[in-house]
């Protein structure tokens, strides 16, 4: 039986993704996501005992480029679509959480 997704899980994922959903949308997506999980469940019926895990759907590997510099956009173009700018910077709401730095 597929482990169906509930509304609390949808709300959590939405929050993590910084998405604001209406109650109606939460209901709608809970149904849709459950259907998707149901479909995945169906695939679990396949016997994959001797099948190597697949990292990518294309049978290609080692796609590289040489370490050479190409021209960048430049500051003006880079900032052209920014909702807000402050001089040469993107201007964003103050970041309170010091979690950045990757």
């Amino acid at each position: 039986m597929a482990e169906k997704i509930d509304e609390a899980q949808v709300r959590k994922v939405a929050k993590l993704s910084r998405l604001e959903l209406t109650d109606a949308e939460v209901g709608e997506f809970t149904g849709q996501l459950s259907a998707i999980l149901g479909y995945v469940e169906k695939m679990n019926e396949l016997d994959t005992e001797n099948v190597e895990p697949l990292a990518h759907c294309l049978p290609i590997s080692n796609v590289f480029r040489p370490d050479s510099v190409k021209e960048s956009l430049g500051t003006e173009k880079a900032l052209a679509n920014a909702p807000q700018r402050d001089g040469d910077f993107f201007k964003v709401p103050k970041i309170l959480d010091v979690g950045s730095g990757a």
């Binding site: 402050d86 040469d88 910077f89 993107f90 709401p93 103050k94 970041i95």
Partner: peptide
């Protein structure tokens, strides 16, 4: 890099 400036905004340099 996020640069914290005064006020309610941060500057971002990518």
């Amino acid at each position: 890099k996020n640069l914290h400036t005064a006020g309610n905004f941060s500057q971002v340099d990518l």
